[in-house]
Amino acid sequence: MIEVASLSKRFGKTQAVSDLSFRVEPGTITGFLGPNGAGKSTTLRSVLGLVHPDAGGATVLGVPYRELDRPLHRVGAVLEASEVHPGRSGRNHLRVLAAAAGIPRSRVEEVLALVELSTAAKRRVKGYSLGMRQRLGLATALLGDPEVLVLDEPANGLDPAGVRWLRDLLRSLAAEGRTILVSSHVLAEVAQTVDRVVIIHRGALVQQASIAEVLAGAQGATRVRSPDAQRLRELIAAQGGTVTDVDDRTFATDLPPERIGKVAAANGIVLHELTVERATLEEVFLELTAGETTQ
């Protein structure tokens, strides 16, 4: 559906994307995640034929974007909420693009209603809030009723109600069988919506998996409580485990519960609690993309 193959792009001294490959499967919502500056926008702009890669490339629906016939009917994209002439009204912004794509004016009113912007449509975009601009961007992407949607940080500038509205909209669009690639630097914005994630950092792929796989691969901590915690701590440390004290009788360790149980049984230590604490998705994300500021 969307296939990025060995994509590399350098801007001056900055290697924005290096040898990046991933696939977006048909009919899924894929989250495209990474900290700010990870190369998400450059990648999306390469996919859409706006940026010329130094090496590698990307195809959408089997061909490079530039070779699509009537591209607005196949792929809808929002890259930045600010790519609108401030002096033009929201409705006229859509009409200009509809005219170029041969889309009837009635469709402009439909998408305005869909993103709940009908009442503000005749106002000039200059006076729009960031959230309204995001909605206008979504309306732009939906003009051609495309089967593929590419959205760059669509939740930016939305209030919590807006984020929820966006989530519901994306879900209903996906339920209609559309393929959606949505980027974000905040995992929580998309975690409840996406089926799969592609995580990049410094222009390179970190992980491409389902949300469940990402969580399963995350290293969890084991929480241990014992009346004889002091002795158990020493035994675990001797096995090479790290120990973080919670209180006198409770601590956390990176050794799995099986090992702890075995050590406790072999030394006749009573356990009161032995639980696995899964890292949250947000923690996993931060761990995978750590060190962003040390560039």
Binding site: L48, R66, V75, H85
Partner: peptide, 18 residues
Amino acid sequence: TTEFRFGTVTPTFLVAPA
């Protein structure tokens, strides 16, 4: 040049990649 000034060149070239 207005298209480059306000970034509207992005949606313009998405509609018409040629």
